Computed example of a mutant assay.
Amino acid sequence: MEHFLADDGEKIHLKISGTGRPVVLLHGWTSTHRDWSPFLEALEPAHQVFRWDARGHGGHALRTGHPPHVARMARDLHNLLDHWQLQDVALVGHSMGALTLWQYLQDYGDGRVSRVAFIDQSPRLLTDDGWAMGIYGDFDAARNRDFIRALEADFAETVLRLAAQGHNARARSRYQENAAGIVRARAFLRQLDPAPLIECWRSLTEADYRAVLGKIRVPALLVYGGASNFYSTGTALHVRDSIPNALLHIYPDVDHAPHLVERERFTRDLLDFLRRLGNE
């Protein structure tokens, strides 16, 4: 893998491939750059593709000790764009990656950005009396404190239960049956250092990007799962209606990773969205 140094000295690892207009792909919490591998063949002929392992992710131990708080990851993204002097870049974020992208837009604006895409995420994860579009529709601060304590006790199992205990019945069934995919995911999660990932989760659940949505001036693609583990269709509609120039696709009967479940459809939707760059 290649790497660059963030402005605090942390080494950020990434893969770069393809030629053409730059696209930066931001993965979700506990995941890695490998999430984007299925889309490289389609993207690389027309795009230079940047896929990082976010700070504290991908099995790369932190050198500085600075945890992967969402504001720090957004600054890492800013450093990445500076390091490769990228302009007119398309930014695509899934889950935590979408939150990182919203934080980036809040802190640095969209002057260097041509397009943005957000995959199955709410601008505020925690719910309260006035906001029911976060996790599960009823994941409030007290429930989050209990969740963090559970992460500290058994990180891998608690992460698996987060997806299994949501809206998606198939995910719940696979967890109860201890399906092969659950076994593989558990083994992967048990290899991770939980401390920085728990700190990352704290920062994600403290964030609120509802005010950012209306300030996004560049075209936005939204892809949501119609059977997301975490979010209702109402969340997707709220995000669409809050961003001035947003195109929403809801993939029916698909979970929190619609791009990975419906790979061919997502590839078509993303390429169509990106091709418009050359027509404006």
Rank of each mutant, 00 (worst) to 15 (best):
G20Q: 11
P196T: 00
W52T: 03
F4N: 10
E206R: 07
R149Y: 12
L189E: 02
K215R: 14
D82Q: 10
H60Q: 11
T233L: 12
P194V: 01
P252G: 04
P45M: 05
Q191R: 11
A61C: 08
R275K: 14
R265V: 10
S228T: 13
S228F: 10
R186V: 08
D255K: 07
D253W: 05
F147S: 04
K11W: 02
A42Y: 13
R34N: 05
A257I: 11
H256W: 11
H249S: 14
F188L: 10
K15W: 05
G65K: 03
L25R: 09
M133Y: 15
V239E: 06
L221S: 04
N245T: 07
Y251T: 08
G18K: 05
R174H: 12
E177G: 10
L105Y: 05
R124F: 06
I216M: 07
F188V: 05
D7C: 09
F39R: 04
L105W: 04
A236T: 14
I182A: 06
A153M: 10
H259F: 08
P67S: 04
V23K: 00
V254C: 08
G134F: 10
R161A: 15
A98S: 09
P194C: 04
A220F: 07
P67W: 00
L25H: 11
L213T: 08
T32E: 01
V254A: 05
G59A: 14
G111C: 02
D8P: 05
E264P: 03
A220H: 07
D76W: 01
Y224A: 13
E280N: 09
A150H: 07
W102L: 13
R63P: 08
K15I: 05
Y108M: 11
R145W: 03
F118Q: 03
Y251P: 06
G166D: 13
T235S: 15
